[in-house]
Amino acid sequence: MPKHRIYTTSFASVYPLYVAKAEKKGRSKAEVDQIISWLTGYGQKELQIQLEKQTDFEAFFAEAPAINPSRALIKGVVCGVRVEDVKEPTMREIRYLDKLIDELARGKTMDQILRRK
């Protein structure tokens, strides 16, 4: 079975959409970056390098310095798919990120989004 096309899509092409979704709801690019950092371990410099390199989603998550073990606490539906039921590891990471950005846009606090309850 061929890979889903999102795997070969550059993270840099989707990143502005995450930021726009957040800003449209009164949130900030800094909050989007904080979510990405929490999930992947990329610092601001490393994230910028990944964006400049046009790294695809598969490599973006494969090269992530410190995938957060608390990401397993992320539950719910995004794009009609329950994130905790996604079997393929890379697709699950992508869905986790999508879910966190959705939560940001829906007005959840950063403590709730980053599972610090």
Rank of each mutant, 00 (worst) to 15 (best):
P2R: 14
K3S: 15
H4R: 13
H4A: 14
I6G: 09
T9P: 05
S10V: 08
F11A: 01
A12T: 07
S13N: 07
Y15I: 11
P16L: 12
L17Q: 15
L17E: 14
Y18H: 15
Y18F: 15
V19C: 08
K21T: 13
A22Q: 09
E23H: 02
E23A: 07
E23Q: 15
K24W: 09
K24L: 11
K24H: 14
K25H: 09
G26S: 09
R27Q: 06
R27N: 09
R27M: 08
S28L: 11
S28C: 13
A30N: 05
A30S: 07
A30V: 12
V32E: 01
D33I: 11
Q34D: 00
I35K: 02
I36W: 01
S37K: 10
W38L: 05
L39V: 13
G41F: 03
G41W: 07
G41D: 09
G43H: 14
G43C: 09
Q44M: 06
Q44Y: 05
Q44K: 14
K45T: 15
E46T: 07
E46N: 02
I49H: 01
L51A: 04
E52N: 10
K53Q: 12
K53V: 04
Q54C: 08
F60K: 04
F60L: 06
F60T: 11
A62S: 12
P65K: 06
A66K: 11
A66W: 07
N68E: 06
P69Y: 00
R71M: 13
L73P: 00
I74F: 02
K75E: 15
K75Y: 08
V77L: 10
V78I: 15
V78P: 00
V78G: 01
C79W: 14
G80F: 10
D85I: 04
D85M: 12
V86S: 07
K87V: 06
P89G: 11
P89Q: 10
T90M: 01
M91S: 10
M91G: 14
R92P: 00
E93Q: 13
I94G: 00
I94L: 00
I94E: 02
R95F: 12
Y96M: 07
D98C: 04
L100Q: 12
L100P: 01
D102I: 08
A105E: 08
G107Y: 10
K108L: 15
K108D: 01
D111V: 04
D111M: 11
Q112K: 14
I113S: 12
R116E: 13
R116M: 11
